[in-house]
Design a protein around this nucleic acid. Structure first.
Lengths: 214, 214
DNA sequence: CCCTTGAGGATTGTTGAACAACATCCTAGC
DNA sequence: GCTAGGATGTTGTTCAACAATCCTCAAGGG
């Protein structure tokens, strides 16, 4: 048992949130969850703080913690930061260790395999891994950590997307295109390609959210 | 009382750390600090989590929390991320709201005033505000938050610098130079100038740390 | 002499209960 | 219909206790 109880509780809650079991906006009652998971309120509160740190839940003073609700503004902002981090990764690709460059290729390939299987949740995961790998080209622990937090947040927005397939399928070929440009050393073109890619994806999500909100 | 007790305790500890009262590496004992500040261990632990979130302290399981010790690797990494965020800000400068652009100029001016007064701690603060303003040109809450965390971390490294004056003085004129380039709309030149600026600053800190460690 | 081993002490991790502080809802009164 | 004020439930904080873990240091064997 190398992890604390609070960390294990946080892991359970994280999974429930990511699976959509705890929908955005729902309150996490200290008493109810404590009884459910068999931990004390104090420990549960520590777990809440860990999740709040990942922006998965929101802590309002004297009101409790709630599963985060993302608005269009949040999505726009997330994509802005992603743009900065992933672009920096692409610019650093030339100097990146081979292992990091291979991680990009691997992620693209796995997304294509998952698509062949029709496993769209897996495609979503592999797609995020691809972008994580792009940012990872910077070889920076802090960039990696920031990227992990951003993508975890973004998963919350995915819950509002009706069809994972319609959202992810068009981007598969574009993932591969960027990967090819990187392999050929055409970093400038890869970066512009990535920028329009992110703009399109963002627009798609924002439009969908605005549709839903009616 | 709009802030919780834990937040107030965290603020006190944050100040002690930033003032060098609690030197890097020292342990924050739960019992001793609880007695000192008049709060229970549980509340103190909550404050510790908040500080750990800012990377000011480090939490080791079953061992307690310690004031963060920065190594050369950390400084290098922090400057890498700073480079990405501040560069992105400079690239976004053309589209940034006037208020954000003015914040850049204000920070440079305040740094110069503080230097005239010989108040070098204030110069350090204004210098950080300048770089925060550069990143702020992206107009992104998440970039702002990330930048705040990075600069708070970096303050820890400043404690190992012997003379604030020798470190900050040479960069004052370069701050102004970058600000001028931005004002003239020469964004590309501003970006390359910024990049070499950050490289130099990083090198200075890293060299100093390696000196100290003997 | 060095290394391993184990007991002891100190600190953190976790619990449960209790009370205070706060937000919300409902009702009484105008 | 609206405001004031109490009722109720939740979170915020404290306290005391015990369990789990780590560190130190000394005893013992090689």
């Amino acid at each position: 048992m190398t992890r604390s109880t609070a960390q294990r509780v946080a892991a359970v809650l994280r999974e429930r949130v990511e699976r959509g079991d705890l929908p955005p906006g729902s309150q996490l009652s200290e008493e109810a969850l404590g009884l459910d998971l068999g931990v004390s309120r104090n420990t549960l509160r520590e777990a809440f703080r860990l999740l709040a740190h990942e922006s998965l839940v929101e802590h309002r003073l004297n009101r409790g913690v709630f599963v985060r609700v993302l608005g269009p503004d949040d999505v726009i902002d997330i994509y802005r930061v992603r743009g900065a981090l992933e672009s920096a990764g692409v610019r650093a690709a030339a100097l990146a260790p081979p292992a990091l460059r291979e991680a990009v290729t691997t992620a693209v390939t796995e997304a294509e395999w998952a698509a062949d299987d029709g496993d769209w949740p897996a495609v979503a995961t592999a797609d995020l891994a691809f972008h994580r790998a792009l940012a990872g080209l910077s070889a920076s622990p802090r960039v990696d950590a920031a990227m992990d937090r951003l993508l975890a947040e973004l998963r919350l927005a995915f819950h509002t997307m009706p069809s994972p397939r319609r959202f992810h399928e068009p981007f598969l070929v574009r993932n591969r295109a960027i990967e090819q440009l990187l392999a050929k050393g055409e970093y400038a073109r890869a970066e512009t390609e990535l920028t329009t890619y992110l703009d399109d994806a963002r627009q798609l999500i924002v439009d969908t959210m605005r549709e839903e909100r009616r």
